[in-house]
Design a protein around this nucleic acid. Sequence first.
DNA 1: GCCGTTTTCGGCCCGACTGTTTTCAGTCG
Length: 608
Amino acid sequence: MHKNMTNTEIAELLRAVAAAYQLQDEDKNHFKIVAYQRAADAVEHASSELKDLWDERKLDEIPGIGKSIAEHLGELFITGKSNHFELVMKGLPSQMFELMKIPGIGVKTAYSLSSKFKHKIREKSAIEDLEKIAKGGGIAKLEGFGEDSENAILSSIKEVRGREDRLLLPYAMQIAEDIVSWMNKSNEVRRVDALGSLRRYASTVGDVDIAVSSDNPKETIEHFTKYPKKSRVLEKGVRTASIIVPGGKQVDLMVEKPESYGSLLQHFTGSKHHNIALRTMALKKEYSVSDYGIYVLDKKRRSQKALKSSRKSLRKFATEEEFYKFLGMDWIAPELREDNGEIQAAINHKLPKLVVLKDIKADLQIHSDFDIETSHDLGESSMQDLVEEAETLDYEYIAFTEHNPSHSKHTENEIVELLKRKREKVDAINYSLKSKNNSKRILKVFNSLEIDILPNGKLPVSDKGLGTLDFALISIHSSFRLTKTQMTQRVLSALSQPKVKIFAHPVARKLGAREGIELDWEKIFEFCLKNDKWLEINADPMRLDLPDFLVREAVKKGVKLTLGTDAHHATHMANMEFGVSVARRGWAEMQDIINTRSLEEFEKMIEL
DNA sequence: GCCGTTTTCGGCCCGACTGTTTTCAGTCG
């Protein structure tokens, strides 16, 4: 028996096949190479495991996987290998794929190095081995290499080693903010924007992308490369430059004149797939789109080679709105630019009216420091401080959702007693809020609880304990590795409790640290819809859970969602921004989100 | 190899920078 391949492994394999074709004959295989790379991208971004899709005969639902690749993958799932893939990759040194993880080393370089040092570079320690060779001056001597490329390889190896994984949003934002304020120190700079995956609020960010509007690109680039906190300048041209900042993170900068800045904003925001789809669509209308603007092509354009000469005039765009309008489209919110149907929707004027931060009238997951001897970490701020923060944020209501009292350390009765104390405390807060006697709107505080779902689907709180609550959240904090069927049953069983309204951080992932659990989402969605249960979008930047692609599925089915920051300190309540961005990436509108409802509506919705 | 609101055949996004060259290949976004 062979173990099932994960999506990541399949993507790696497809990229290896693309590399093999590239080495064979890059020109002849060009589109085949692109196709395999696109398939690899698609597999990486797929929302389900490919093996599961294959089991359900739904492999063709993934755009980029056609008949041929699907067949090879099928063979792979049945026999553990694909004859075709093996044939294509025959004779390729396996070390080369390790070397390709070093920035600047691509297919050709990796192949040439691993062939030349066949015995000195071993697969298990390819990068270390290459470093030794480079340090000994062994690379500079090779034909086609030199001292500069040897040094570049050495720097890259150091960075790849010191580099953390992709950044969580707040860290990427911090890097971007520092650069933006540095760039604003230059008189030549008219405007600076952080773009790329950060502007699209992807769950994690690889590189930080910065665009600058300036009449003087040369000076702007010069200023950028003098950024005091940089560890080194990676590239420096007339229009773009890249630096490495501490942590090994790369910051890319592009400059454009104000009259064309809209095109740069559009281009540099991406995503790559959005841009490719957009440009392909434009080409059918005889427009050639680039980061400079849009060339209107000569109708008689016959071939790719004639493309450049068939260009007539360049249309420039100072704003993104003008750019999209020229193509006959509505402006598309950055969060939607993933080539998931937004282009067609923009042409048909059918884009969703995405929820925005100021629609949010409540935070539905907050942990105070009120000690009910919880099973997991208590919050750090007092209920009073959290209430004040909620008033500052202009919320109409909030819910205190401490973890349930520890099941193992207390009897059922003790748990009920602890919960009664919290009930009294919350009642007292609501009473004092009401008697403040000012003209302002009165904040309402709900008494809730985040309850562990035990592995058997039961809750560690009795009916009597549940009776003290206005409503309950449930979530998974243990036994993450049950089978999909067991896990689904576990969750549905817990959701059946009448007091339970919200399934919190449903995937239970921790970005960069823990994969999520496996659930039968069709069943979960169906149950939620039928029984009026809601799925949380957890706004903690380390969770962002439900993930955007599942939000999209939920929204399509009409399942309602809640937003909660999972704040364990008053300052964490500001993370709502990240939760809203996930909702937007899932095409959620105001009516999809429960906590856009007024207090009166919400109170009706939690009545039993 | 993939794909279709002009197509099941004939197309496939567009550009910048570096290093080693002497006109370009390789890499990246």
